[in-house]
């Protein structure tokens, strides 16, 4: 019993040593939450697909490493990166100062803004109406919406939920006055519940949020390679091809609504 325990502890302690032996040939583990179509989603048989998945594969090709996609819940992504369960995060993650304290980001590859989903009876017309006593704002835990609400909506009551679907339900059932998330999600949620919700798609922040590929701090070599890859993908039309493949209809809507597009 004791012997097996000691060997178990030794195995745990030595594990990273073995893992670090061959750095370049080992597969690139990419973490993402497959709950944000069409960026991160899975097909009916469960294989990951979407823009971020294609992007990860293109990055793997560029680096000459095999890519393993790992589906991890949103608020587990950064801890997984920190504990070396994954190597990078490509999950439509916005670069924020708070996140920069614990992880590193590549140069931005896309942009997105926050928007508001509200219900017809709440009387919310803009984000100013939300920063008031008695207003209830739903957010998804750990998202930019959550960070924004804590910093800018101090008077409102926050409802922090695990799932986007719960947040939408709270708004529909009028338990929350608004749900703050990115424009694409808000637009899609509104489309699914046209009678019970109102989408305010005008950006609520002055500057858009920029998405980056997240990696651990102090890995300049990998960071330089990823940055070079993003620059190349921007110039050789990789992003345009992905946008055409996945976002054709959404792009039209965004242009019609005068919302800046992702790429």
């Amino acid at each position: 019993m004791l012997k097996s325990f000691i060997s178990f502890v030794l195995l745990l302690a030595l594990n990273p040593m073995f893992a670090n032996a061959g750095t370049n040939t080992k597969p690139l583990k990419v973490g993402m939450e497959l709950q944000y179509p069409p960026f991160e989603m899975s097909t009916k048989d469960g294989t990951p697909s979407g823009i971020s998945v294609d992007l990860a594969k293109a990055l793997g090709k560029y680096l000459g490493r095999k890519v393993i996609i790992q589906n991890i819940a949103w608020d587990g992504l950064i801890p997984s990166l920190k504990t070396k369960k994954i190597d990078i995060i490509i999950s439509s993650m916005t670069i924020t100062d708070k996140r920069k304290k614990v992880i590193d980001f590549s140069i931005p590859y896309a942009q997105s803004d926050l928007a508001i989903l509200t219900n017809p009876t709440s009387g919310v017309k803009s984000v100013k109406d939300l920063n008031q006593k008695g207003k209830v704002v739903a957010v998804k835990k750990g998202t930019t919406g959550n960070i924004y609400a804590i910093e800018h909506l101090k008077k409102a009551k926050l409802l922090i939920l695990d799932k986007e679907s719960s947040a939408v339900l709270e708004v529909i059932q009028k338990r929350a006055d608004a749900f703050i998330y990115d424009q694409l999600t808000i637009y899609r949620d509104w489309k699914n519940h046209k009678n019970t919700t109102v989408a305010l798609l005008k950006p609520i922040t002055k500057k858009p949020g920029y998405w980056g590929i997240a990696l651990r701090q102090n890995e300049p070599e990998l960071k330089a390679k990823i940055n070079a890859f993003i620059k190349k993908a921007k110039s050789d039309g990789t992003f345009d091809r992905l946008a055409y493949k996945y976002l054709k209809d959404i792009k039209k809507t965004f242009i019609k609504l005068n919302i800046p597009f992702f790429f």
């Binding site: 608020d75 801890p79 920190k82 996140r99 992880i103 835990k141 750990g142 922090i160």
Partner: peptide
């Protein structure tokens, strides 16, 4: 648990 999860999501210190 909720509050601990919340702190985790702000500080990323699981």
């Amino acid at each position: 648990t909720m509050n601990a999860q919340e702190v985790n999501s702000y500080t990323f210190s699981t």
